[in-house]
Design a protein around this nucleic acid. Structure first.
Lengths: 341, 341
DNA sequence: TTTAGCACTCAATAAGCATGAGTGCTAACA
DNA sequence: TGTTAGCACTCATGCTTATTGAGTGCTAAA
């Protein structure tokens, strides 16, 4: 629907605006090497593009700024593949060269690198591994009344909780219970656990039901409720953006980012592949001036987490998308090789 | 050295400025009920106080603002005991009524409450419990080449790390090693661990030295190197302060707060009791416009961690000090009752 | 010693004006 | 018919100037 020339001009405007943060005028565009038209011609085209909703004018005598629709067209049709520099590629390689790290830790570093490479805020989620299987249960008494219950999954995740011991329970009894649980529940996949717990073990536990209720509940919780872990890095990068030099504009954003439980809503597990949400397209009011780009990473082909970038609508979409793809791919490869062998 | 009247006036000025954030003039002070002098008299006194370095004037025709020295005098001599409201006390009580929480978790909630009650940024450190004793070691193999090593201390702290297994090692061998370690090292206090590790066990390990080196190193690390945990809450509260409505002013502060490893320098384990560092007294440039109030909490009389508040120099010192004292006391009581029985 | 009175200072606000980047439109040109 | 030169017009920005008012310092009288 847009002529080639219109696309070319739109592309030039978005490009320019992304780097200058200033409304761009017709003369600026006509001076570009790849454009062979006078400013007057550009003006006409710009006028048309504005009428079509791809551009906006802050005020009559200012240049044009891309609208949400304009960015959307740019992202969907005009974006050109971005090549990373040597140094950038190096950092990525280095990250995935690390062995001997929990999946969680790799993900944490990923957030760090992501923010460093893009200069935007990185939000990384996961990994939420659905096929968690129980590997080991341990209860370590600390004193007469307290103990730590520990659960290890086959992915190497460790959860622990302080629990109150029933009065007068002996080390032997605890050991018996632990052995029982380990014997019956090892390698049981998560989704069967609740069922198994009550089915197979309730008999043996008839005597103690009341006492061990809490332990069982923890077991159930720590394996059932996937505690999603969100890593946030570079939240303050937004302060470098000229359009956010006003405290009131950033306050809502930073407050949102500060609430970790809200972050899930921000990068929300939407599509599995690459998703770009631009400005007004975002649900949350606080970030209607921002764009969010996310993609998922996977384990054995199954998406288990997300990496995302939050920046101004005037974002370097091309670069961010490239970096995200690299990272998601690297993460997936790493996770898969770690757990699927 | 300051006359009673001077102190009274200084007190009134600081009080007023803390609540208004505007330079305070002589008339404002003379109108206060507790002051029975005309504005002219106040002016003379203010002039003297400025000469003595307790007050500053943003410009000739503005009111006065307390200097760092002025705040210092206020904090050291003039501050009046602050009474907390019912609702505030309730929140504190509720926090410490929780049982069945790791020390770490209580500390985390403490940061939350602290920030909520004061409307400033809360930084909480610790608890760094020096008398860590080893309670249990566990190695859970995940597959042929990887395992999770878990260490539980007598305080209920759980550390874990993914480790590579030497090729061809069997479950039996691992179990033997774990039993050996548990047998020899349980209840060994931290500070003896390194020594014992090499002294008592090196013999048994002669055969495997190379293979188990990594495991031992982790053991050593996770118990020796006290990983200090810092909890930060309400970092964005600073954005509510009128003197920080400028992005450039807050940027350095927020960036500092974002680096968790820097936070130690911010609230740094200085004195054990209540410490107030006002404006220029701070080492870090980024927070020379801020004040930091910290106090320590203890376990059995021995300081093990810190609670702190970061806010503008124009801070409600009285209230913050009261809240901090309450929290430190509550934390200490809780920790002590939890571990010293 | 205190205070009323007054001249003085200076940030903040508003108003007026020039500047210039940018537009839209029209008419001429290829 | 598409392109462009030219020109009038708009409007944010920045500068200058005047006005206001909160606040001071100083002096002289109580």
């Amino acid at each position: 629907m847009l002529s080639d020339r219109q696309q070319m001009i739109l592309n030039a405007i978005v490009d320019n605006y992304i780097h200058s943060a200033e409304p761009v005028g017709s003369r600026t565009i006509s001076k570009r090497e790849d454009i062979g038209f006078s400013s007057a011609t550009i003006r006409n085209e710009m006028s048309d593009l504005e009428e079509l909703g791809y551009l906006e004018q802050p005020h009559t005598s200012a240049g044009r700024v891309p609208s949400t629709k304009g960015y959307r067209f740019y992202v969907d049709n005009l974006i050109q593949p971005h090549l990373l520099e040597e140094a950038e590629l190096g950092k990525l390689k280095q990250l995935f060269a690390e062995r001997i790290l929990h999946a969680e830790q790799v993900v944490e570093y990923t957030a760090q690198i992501l923010s460093q490479l893009t200069n935007y805020t990185a939000i990384v989620l996961g990994p939420e591994i659905f096929e968690h299987r129980l590997k080991h249960i341990q209860i370590v008494p600390l004193n007469a009344s307290q103990a730590v219950a520990i659960v290890v999954t086959h992915t190497g995740r460790v959860e622990n909780k302080l629990i109150d011991l029933p009065e007068g329970i002996g080390a032997g009894e605890i050991e018996r219970l632990v052995n029982l649980l380990n014997g019956k529940l090892t390698d049981v996949p998560l989704w069967q656990l609740r069922q198994r717990l009550y089915q197979e073990i309730s008999g043996e536990m008839q005597r103690h039901t009341e006492q061990y209720e809490e332990i069982l509940q923890f077991l159930n919780n720590s394996l059932t409720q996937e505690e999603e872990r969100v890593y946030l890095r570079g939240a303050t990068k937004i302060l470098n953006q000229p359009e956010f030099r006003d405290v009131d504009k950033v306050k809502d954003i930073l407050e949102l980012l500060e609430q970790h439980d809200q972050l899930l809503n921000v990068i929300g597990m939407q599509g599995d592949g690459l998703t770009v949400r631009i400005g007004q397209e975002n649900q949350l009011d606080a970030i209607k001036q921002c764009s969010i780009i996310t993609t998922s990473y996977s384990l054995g082909g199954k998406p288990v987490g997300m990496v995302g970038i939050l920046g101004p609508t005037r974002m370097e979409y091309g670069k961010v998308i490239t970096v995200l793809n690299h990272l998601a791919e690297g993460l997936s490869r790493m996770l898969t090789s770690q757990f699927e062998k």
